[in-house]
Design a protein around this nucleic acid. Sequence first.
RNA 1: GGAGACAUAGCUCAGCUGGGAGAGCAUUUGCUUGACGUGUAAAGGGUCGCAGGUUCGAGUCCUGUUGUCUCCACCA
Length: 882
Amino acid sequence: MATNLSKTYDPSQIEDRLYQKWLEKKYFHAEVDPNKKPFTIVMPPPNITGQLHMGHALDNTLQDILIRYKRMQGYSALWQPGTDHASIATEVKIIAKLKEEGIEKEDLGREGFLERAWDWRKEYGGRIISQLKKMGSSADWDRERFTMDEGCSEAVQEVFMKLYDKGYIYKGSRIINWCPVCQTSISDAEVEYQEQEGHFWHIKYPIVGEDGFVEIATTRPETLLGDTAVAVNPEDERYTHLVGKMLKLPLTDREIPVIADSYVDKEFGTGCVKITPAHDPNDFEVGKRHNLEEINILNDDATINENGGKYCGMDRYEARRVMVEELEQQGLLVKVIKHVHNVGTHDRCKTTVEPMIKKQWFVAMEEMAKPAMEALKTGELKFVPEAFGKTYMHWLENIRDWCISRQLWWGHRIPAYYCDKCGEIVVSREQPSVCPKCGHTHLTQDPDTLDTWFSSALWPFSTLGWPKKTPELEYFYPTDVLVTGYDIIFFWVIRMVFSGYEQTGVSPFHTVLIHGLVRDSQGRKMSKSLGNGIDPLEVIDKYGADALRMTLVTGNAPGNDMRFYWERVEASRNFANKVWNASRFIMMNTEGVDTSAVELSDLEDADKWILSKVNRLAKEVTENMDKYELGIALQKVYDFIWEEFCDWYIEMVKPRFYNAEDERSKAAACWTLTTVLIQALKLLHPYMPFITEEIFCNLQSEEESIMISAWPEYRADWDFAQVENRIERMKEAVRAIRNVRASMNVPPSKKADIFVVAEKEEVREAFTTSRAFFTALSNAASVTIQADKTGIGEDAVSAVTADAVMYIPLAELVDIEKEIARLTKEEKRLAGELKRSHGMLGNERFISKAPAEKIAEEREKLEKYTQMMEQVKEQLARLQKA
RNA sequence: GGAGACAUAGCUCAGCUGGGAGAGCAUUUGCUUGACGUGUAAAGGGUCGCAGGUUCGAGUCCUGUUGUCUCCACCA
């Protein structure tokens, strides 16, 4: 069977089949199991409108790695998946689709529209889930949830009621961000500021009853229609005499007062600010302080309303143009200055948002923010990397009340009812039949829905059954790690944390693992408009899911952005192929060899060395994984497999298969190859689930899957520190010889007799023990090991290591000049080392203050380099004489 | 205006609690050795942005500085 494996790894032949197997075997399913410890991750629910992009791919790869790791460690590891209804995003998509059919949202009515929305969800909502499966995601799909399913909706209602009863949810007229295109309010977090080139229009406001005027500067002249005052700083002597006087508001017949407010900066602009309480958050505050009238001049689509007089009906920008023109004609426009300023836009549609006063529902944040801040201080909540904790704190410290109502249909409808007669507000799960205040029997439900993030905020516990006290909630909650991008801390992480504390009394998770963005090869954000996005499915198609996953975690530290290069995917694919072929080699050579009687005492040096190495690797990788250093852990597994295992150990072992007849030795090699490979595959499995599973299953039959096999643990009986040194010595010797041969262009086919000269008996022993592979790896015709130089001709070149000199009689091939050059270079390197070492050991402060082990270490090095230097000098002298 | 991140080999990036500078790709040169050329062996290439400081010792800690980026605030 083994030899049937193809010469190169072909993921397309394997991935779907294995995923199907995992699904059928229910390996992803986590049960409440009192005999195990729980480990839980909630998947950030992708939007039902979503298509898998690199961000998802990265996010889910990290989660899958953690979940697979913990599952192998014996936890009942739950990765709780689901999707988000994504109110605005979805509603916009459906409206667009209706438009193609020539239908307006209003034509369908609320009921009809929702029907279409649910249809849409049924059709496309599962798309992203099936894409996540292509990644190898081992989420518990049996528990898949949706933010608008029955349970989640119940949780939303429950929270709304509780917060309302507590007075944390209130309805009020506040200045909010309004999107004129989406026609809904949006929260502060959804406003994205963009730098735009604009102008400063300096406009004269004539003083009533006097000749003079006041000059104000504005970036938005059209809002003049809503001005109800002009403010100056109370300490601004230029204007104190004007405070209390009235100004004639240009282009209107209104008169407005000059007021004094410290909000005004004397140094900025003209020092006079027009105050438009209805269309600017700061002016709104000023207006409140001075009891100013709030004049809303805009319709919901950002055209001027009837308060705008003759400009009524014009778009905001058209009105601006016309008004500026008229001001100029009237001589009231002083000047226009170019000005770059930040304009708030809606993050979904990029429309410039309009601050407006609207009656909306809000969540009071002050009290709920407190435990969320406390959580970070006490360490109940940690960010990886830590720096993001500051972002989190800063936002919480400056938090404002959260506008949660949206003028949309797709979402959780606000459970508030208004009495048709007296207007009483009743918040209730069910439609109330009677008004508790006036007894009227007709109440109408609030038409608005809740911000999508209101339900996402409950995700860690609503998905586990809350508000019901389910066994799942009891067992899996609080969850452990939340994995997400730094761009979503404000939207989601913070809201989950304060919701968790408010509703369940605990933080919903103890660690937030933050990752960066996947950018294109030029460092640009991948975006639809740029068309520079790379489809993860295309990558999987070409190189396999394992290669994609590996690419996404290699060489990347938490929280940092990364660039996507096809070259890197290729490198990952090459590694997969390497693993594949090493395994193929092992299968071919171990087939039919009985290893059942092999004991640790049968192992040869090389076997013990690699076993010891993989043993320590397991320990280190586990430590790295526990610290969320996933990139480092993978790098270590990669280096081990490619360098130590493939390039060294497999090469060391080959003579035992090809030449020797020693069955015992062969069996030991087979056992070691298989054992070490399995250990390495297990360590690699969380990163590359498919290829590791395929090989694992081909290698052995007792266990049915690597993904439910036990994670390698360090074991004392596999620790062979002494042997490791001996093999490292051999490697050094081989490298030294290869170096000599390479520098003289001796092809491997040209075998040489090698004489190893080592004074110490233990060194000669080490060479003797490893003679077989040493001969092969150094391309020797023969290896003679001796204590002195007896019988070695003067024409031999030499390779020097710390405790041995290897002589290679290659006289006819040797270019003396080259050899002298090589040795001179080596001499120079050693001189540098010696200088450094002498410097350190000659420094008495080092001797007196550094730890003893460091000093001992340094002394050893000094001794080693001194010996090597002597040898090199001797060889040089010999050559120069010749 | 406030905060944070990054600055290491030609390119993209690792480098954990301070103790002899690394990987991948690229470049140059060998290799039809019976797992793999998606391979293998070697080579070149870095004053770890700059300046101070702490320390026996700093890429790693502290301060300052320059440059790039991000987030928050939004002075109209």
